[in-house]
Design a protein around this nucleic acid. Structure first.
Lengths: 119, 119
DNA sequence: CTTAATAGTATCCTTTTTGATACTATACAA
DNA sequence: TTGTATAGTATCAAAAAGGATACTATTAAG
């Protein structure tokens, strides 16, 4: 398959995965199935409430995750990946694999450079 | 495969694909094999020289593309995908496919909403 | 009456990204 | 000597993204 650059839909997928936090959030939800807001906040170190809310809303808008509110006090809100959201799975897996390999690639490049300089 | 959120390498791949222009640039190079700076500029509508240069440098730094300078006047510089860069191919293809489907998904969602409102 | 817990908002500030525009070097051609 | 083509830089401005912090609503427990 050749993708016509003019009709490129890569950005559409990209737009959903991009953001400093979205991949980690997705991986957490994929791993645990369902997480409360506070659990996610604990599990994603360094994220602020504002950012977590924002990323979750955006993912929800794209039907990637589902938000369920329990009418309780104190509030309870659960997030989970939708069936549709699961279709991102292979992409995340492929990117993770590529990324893992790329880390090695960069390391080798760095070592080569270091060796050359010391010779 | 379950990706451990803490060891997530998705960002690494993401970092390389992200930017308003990178996917289009890559697709152009994949389609045409080799392109001069000015050809890319023509083919990627709306991009500024600064942005094109920046994106190309970043892709070059990651070994995704190669830059060949011909010592001529006026200058001639050719860009092409590296062998290593080709390894991004399946990811771009997967994202494009997903994106294409997602466009449909969003459209259906929109139509459903419109129907509901008019009833 | 006060405090605690949860899931947020609201506001302001900083950093990063992107864009517009002007400028440069060089050799050849008219 | 002026203009042209190519592949850039440099500088400043605007916009987008991200972060810090404070604040809110609600109910039950003490």
């Amino acid at each position: 398959m050749t993708i016509e650059p003019e009709l490129c839909k890569v950005e559409d997928a990209l737009g959903i995965l991009v953001g400093k936090w979205k991949p980690i959030i997705l991986l957490h939800l994929m791993k645990h199935g369902t997480q409360r807001f506070s659990e996610l906040k604990r599990n994603v170190p360094g994220i602020t409430q504002k950012m977590l809310t924002k990323q979750l809303r955006e993912l929800e808008d794209e039907d990637i995750i589902e938000r369920v509110v329990y009418p309780q006090v104190p509030p309870k809100v659960e997030y989970s990946i939708t069936e549709y959201g699961r279709s991102l799975d292979p992409i995340l897996a492929a990117m993770h694999e590529w990324g893992t390999n790329h880390t090695i690639h960069k390391q080798q490049k760095l070592m080569k450079k270091t060796t050359e300089q010391s010779s």
